[in-house]
Amino acid sequence: METKLWVVDNFTNEKDIYPQIEEAADLLRNHEVVAFPTETVYGLGGDATSDKAVDKIFAAKGRPSDNPLIVHIGDKEQLHTFVESIPSKAEKVIDAFWPGPLTVILPKKDQVSDKVTAGLNSIAVRMPSHPVALALLKKVALPIAAPSANLSGKPSPTLARHVMNDLEGRISGVVDGGATGVGVESTVLDCTEEIPIILRPGGITQKELENVIGPVKVDRALISDKEAPKSPGMKYTHYAPDAPLVIVDGSSDFFQSIIDHYKDQGKRVGVLTTSEHENVYKADAVITCGSRSNLETVATHLYESLRSFNECDVDIIVSESFSEEGVGHAVMNRLMKAAGHHVIKQ
């Protein structure tokens, strides 16, 4: 299969990129799958009302079909066509954070394929803020199911070339809208409960949500790896680079001792760190993913940094740990998943 690439990096308005958007929209209307940028990561889109399109998403990613998908829309009014009801707290967070990196889980109608929801009676929906995503979604005028546009289990893509590396020849096209901004997936908020529950941390923090709707719970699976996660995209191992990853929680000296331990075993060691410690550690490859003083930068560059190790010929990756305050919660959630919850503490 030929995978087309449409470059719309210098997007200013829909008219400027009309030919590319129209071609991608036509493919989506015809049950094909197309990757496109959002403000979080690149998504792999397919018509959420089409079993054929949804099957192609799962096949391209190699993703288990019992893992629900998030539906993306370009207009809030689309919600009413496939959502049974919108609780008042859901309305408040939608008004506050859409378009943006927030997914809400709501009771569903039957218009969307059961394969999107894995047979559940609820549906996960979001309206992205990326201008290219919005232009495409408005043009196709369909609810678009879109998990991250990567092979299942690999780090999510924040650049079009990441998508091409994983999925070229497996999907119909990629809309290249440049680098994504947030860098980690959307926050998933279950609004079917009286007190909404965060099922996946992301670009919108618990504090930001509570400022709008009051108390918000956190899914127990985010606290304990023994609990089964409920959120789309969180059920299986995710975000892992080719080499094993271990998180080290301790001083710089302790961190270096772990590096030395692996080097003594004859292993090539990669280090994931921040700009503050860029020249501190002695290893075979040192990659920085942002600044410890600004965890938003770490979130933005996390997946790209993890993917970079695949080109470094390392046998193991040793990562620093981060504060779980604010977006740090999402960063550590992704790192823990990538590491299989393997943490070495001082």
Rank of each mutant, 00 (worst) to 15 (best):
D55E: 15
I213M: 01
P201D: 11
L136G: 09
E210F: 08
V218E: 02
I86E: 03
S231V: 09
R126W: 04
Q265M: 15
E32W: 00
Y42N: 03
V188C: 02
S148A: 10
V212Q: 04
W6A: 08
N10C: 08
K4L: 14
F255D: 01
L167C: 02
R126Q: 05
E168S: 15
K52F: 14
K15W: 13
D284P: 08
V280I: 13
A35Y: 03
P131G: 10
D75V: 12
L28S: 04
L106G: 00
S275G: 12
I17L: 12
C289F: 06
S319M: 09
A179S: 15
D166F: 00
A24D: 04
Y262T: 07
N165H: 12
V280W: 10
A149L: 06
V286P: 11
Y18N: 14
Q20I: 02
L79E: 07
K139F: 06
A35E: 00
I86R: 07
N13A: 09
V112W: 04
L69P: 03
T12I: 14
I195Y: 07
K263I: 03
G328M: 02
D16K: 13
K76T: 15
A96P: 06
A124I: 08
I213W: 05
A338L: 04
Y303S: 08
A35I: 07
R161I: 15
W98R: 02
G202C: 09
V327K: 05
V298D: 10
G45Q: 03
T12A: 12
K138M: 11
I213V: 08
Q346T: 12
R170D: 14
L167A: 05
D114V: 06
H238M: 04
E14M: 11
Y239D: 07
S50A: 08
I198E: 04
D253L: 11
K138S: 09
L151A: 13
E39L: 11
S152T: 07
G74N: 09
D249K: 15
V248T: 10
E325N: 12
D313M: 12
D66P: 00
L5F: 02
E276S: 08
Y281R: 01
E325Q: 14
L137C: 00
G74V: 04
K263R: 12
P157V: 03
P143Q: 07
L222A: 05
E91F: 10
